[in-house]
């Protein structure tokens, strides 16, 4: 019996991003396509940043998860076009980021509010944070430093 594509998407939504484990690879918007090619399950995955060291780990995590669900014939392709954009983060992904203490991307080019206290009184510490996808900011009210998920 073949597993439905919808079922596979559900399983993928349980695969955490290795660097921000509160969101799934589906929340992150990097799984671009899931389809059956005869007996082979074919996935298209796009990297967030060209040099993101997590990209290879993510492909391995996805494969491991699907094997755990009994699938064995899996092909994972890297698709770079169209390039990943933070617009592909899901709504639930954005909410989970904020709850975790990472300000979600905003088209204004900086965080809307402090993920801890909600203040809008913020300053940028560094354009780059702990991973290529984040910048480093600080709240000038509660004084907590926090990561901001860069808008790309």
């Amino acid at each position: 019996m073949t597993v439905s594509v919808a079922q596979v998407w559900q399983w993928l939504d349980e695969v955490p991003d290795p660097e921000i484990p509160v969101i799934s690879v589906v929340d992150l918007g990097i799984v671009r396509d899931v389809k059956w090619d005869n007996e082979t399950l074919e996935l298209a995955v796009t990297p967030t940043y060209s040099g993101c060291p997590a990209t290879r780990v993510i492909a391995m995590d996805i494969e491991t998860a699907l094997r755990d669900h009994g699938l064995s014939d899996i092909r994972i392709k890297t698709r770079i076009s169209p390039p990943w954009t933070t617009d592909w983060l899901t709504e639930s992904g954005r909410a989970k980021l904020e709850e975790y203490g990472i300000a979600p991307p905003s088209p204004a080019g900086g965080p809307e509010k402090c993920p801890q206290c909600g203040s809008g009184n913020l300053s940028k510490i560094s354009q780059f944070g702990s991973t290529p996808c984040k910048a480093h900011w600080r709240c000038d009210d509660c004084l907590e430093p926090f990561d901001y998920f860069k808008c790309l």
Binding site: P47, Y49, G51, C52, P53, F128, G129, S130, T131, H136
Partner: peptide
Amino acid sequence: LEEDIALANMALDLIGQTQM
């Protein structure tokens, strides 16, 4: 430290582009 991280991240982007 901030510059160290920023430089390392930029290097990563550039090496990633190199792979392509």
